[in-house]
Amino acid sequence: MRILVTNDDGIFSEGIYQLAKAFMSIGEVIVVAPNKEQSATGHSITLHRPLRVSKVKFFDTPIEAHAIDGTPVDCVKVAVEAILKDRRPDLVVSGINNGPNLGTDVIYSGTVSAAVEAAILEIPSIAVSMASTKIDTFQDAAEFTCRITKSIHQLTRSKVGIININYPTCRKESISGVKVTTLGVRRYENSLIERKDPRGDSYYWISGKAMELQQSEDSDVIAVRNNYISITPIHFDLTHFKDYDDLKKIKFEA
């Protein structure tokens, strides 16, 4: 199996190192990732300047690695369509993200967007994140993802699926188990912080604290809150089929 590993925290982050190292045990690993942090870039791509690609030494491993001065989606596109055009990956794994990608936050996530881009290119993919930024180790999450990949790949291969994993940051012995989940809802309070520059003009930081919202019991948010590893199947078809059916009943005139 040939595995493309990417992320949004940058090619020299601890999460991608542990993930790529774990996957060496099951296949050929190639790392193509941003040369600096690209968190919350969503599904953006770079159109108005060239992308620079640099081959780099990937920590203490023999893994082939390339750093790109672009977004995670750029990395997947360049990897599949250029760097690996004659060595198409069987699987794309994105992560391990330094923090959660739960619920509706997946729309903003560079980590998840890299996995979505892989699916658009008809390659099965996995996005994996830590369920909190209070992280002692990425190793357990990396080993878990690697361990379940064979089962997930058999499921997703025919459907070109995307799997979103969030791994608890509690002690390994405190993990409650594994749950297959739905996407919850994430919203933030005080998400814009206004400040003044020396000229008295306003500028803003986008920040904020996640709100405690009512969630479905089968949501990823509830699962990780209770120390479960969350596994959520997602897809990029945003069609609202209920509204589609309702709109089909209306006679529109051009």
Rank of each mutant, 00 (worst) to 15 (best):
M1E: 05
M1R: 12
V5E: 04
N7D: 14
G15S: 13
L19V: 13
A20V: 06
I26C: 13
G27Y: 07
E28P: 07
V31C: 06
A33Y: 01
A33D: 02
N35I: 15
Q38D: 06
G42N: 03
I45P: 00
I45W: 03
T46R: 07
R49F: 06
P50F: 08
P50V: 05
V53L: 05
V53C: 09
V56K: 03
K57N: 11
K57A: 12
F58W: 13
F58I: 08
P62F: 14
I63R: 04
E64K: 12
E64W: 00
A65E: 08
A65M: 01
H66T: 01
H66Q: 01
I68E: 06
C75P: 01
V76D: 13
K77P: 00
V80G: 00
E81T: 10
I83T: 02
K85N: 03
K85C: 01
K85P: 00
R88W: 02
D90C: 02
L91M: 13
S94H: 11
S94G: 07
G95D: 08
I96R: 14
T111W: 06
V112S: 02
S113N: 10
S113W: 00
I123P: 03
V128H: 02
I135E: 06
D136F: 10
T137G: 10
F138G: 00
D140W: 05
E143V: 14
E143I: 15
R147N: 10
I148Y: 12
I148D: 10
I148W: 04
S151E: 12
H153T: 10
T156E: 12
R157M: 08
S158L: 14
K159R: 15
K159L: 08
I163A: 14
N164A: 10
I165P: 02
P168V: 06
K172E: 13
S174G: 04
G177V: 05
L183D: 06
L183N: 08
G184V: 02
G184H: 01
R186F: 00
L192M: 11
E194F: 14
R195V: 02
K196M: 11
D197S: 13
P198F: 09
D201Q: 14
S202V: 13
S207P: 00
G208T: 09
A210E: 10
M211S: 01
E212R: 08
E217F: 13
I222T: 05
A223F: 10
A223P: 07
A223M: 07
V224K: 07
V224N: 07
N226C: 06
I229T: 11
I231Y: 00
P233N: 14
P233H: 11
H235P: 02
F236H: 04
L238G: 05
L238C: 02
L238N: 09
H240E: 08
F241D: 01
L247V: 03
I250P: 03
